[in-house]
């Protein structure tokens, strides 16, 4: 059983966000990037557990990203993955998640893969697109919002739990498959210092964007992608809009209406 885990190098959760001068994304200057976004890290941990507990043969970590994204691969190698593949994009490339899925699928298609694991969504664009799009492009079933999984290698079946609104579904499905993980069975491990030093010697393959694009041409479906038109930060706070009311019920109704229709948070 060969496992592939896809991760994304994203800004640290505590980074102060500033808009880039082209107004399309954050300004990366001074931003600390990390792989420690909850879902990808959980996916990496789960992939490693498949190797340790369920006898998977190898774990390969793959990313699409600029040169700095190699750090994310090194991190997962330090956690214990065996090999890495880096589909390298220009530093300023802003890729649509469907494009990312196509680049990944083109490369993954040429690698042994029984289970492809991704985090539910990246911590930056929060799209959650790559997992099930990969399923379509690789012609595999995809299972998303998975919270638990146990493979049975003999029957090539996965027993899984997945989040559904209001609860959890226990289900099973065959693999090879793509799994989008909501959370793993265990807290992601912290790479130890000796493992960090060892990971430097593990194989890391670079695939150029052009090469990945060529490989993606063989995939089914017509490539289409969205494009970010503009990026916006919430306006600075200028003091609260005060609710005028006679009775508590009136205050509640007015507030709920604003939260729903204006703030769109309910």
């Amino acid at each position: 059983m060969d496992v592939i885990v896809c991760v994304k190098h994203v800004p640290d959760a505590e980074t102060r966000l500033r808009a880039a001068s082209n107004g399309k994304w954050i300004d990366p200057d001074g931003v600390k990037f990390t792989v420690n976004n909850t879902y990808d890290e959980a996916a990496a941990e789960e992939a490693l557990r498949l190797k340790e507990k369920c006898g998977a043969k190898s774990v390969r970590v793959v990313t699409v990203g600029p040169p700095r994204a190699e750090e994310a691969l090194r991190y997962v190698l330090s956690m214990g993955a065996d090999e890495a593949t880096h589909i390298e994009t220009p530093a300023d490339a802003l890729l649509d998640p469907l494009t990312v899925a196509r680049l990944l699928a083109g490369v993954i298609k040429t690698l042994p893969h029984d289970i492809v694991m991704v985090g539910k969504q990246a911590a930056d664009d929060e799209a959650g697109v790559v997992g099930s799009a990969l399923g379509a492009l690789l012609g595999l079933p995809s299972y998303a919002f998975v919270t638990e999984l146990a493979p049975d290698a003999a029957t090539k079946t996965l027993k899984m739990h997945r989040y559904v609104e209001g609860g959890e579904e226990h289900f099973q499905g065959p693999f090879p498959a793509v799994i989008s993980l909501l959370k793993g069975a265990a807290d992601p491990r912290t790479p130890t210092l000796p493992n960090i030093l060892k990971a430097r010697k593990k194989p890391l393959t670079k695939v150029s964007l052009a090469d990945a694009q060529t490989r993606a041409q063989a995939l089914p479906g017509a490539p289409a992608s969205g494009a970010v038109r503009s990026f916006a930060l919430p306006p600075p706070k200028t003091g609260a809009k005060m609710i005028e009311y006679q009775t508590p019920d009136e205050a509640a109704e007015k507030l709920v209406k604003l939260l729903r229709e204006e703030a769109k948070v309910l």
Binding site: S132, L137, P220, A224
Partner: peptide
């Protein structure tokens, strides 16, 4: 996303 990838849509 799966549908979009299959029918050449955007998502």
């Amino acid at each position: 996303p799966r549908l979009a990838a299959e029918v050449g849509g955007t998502v």
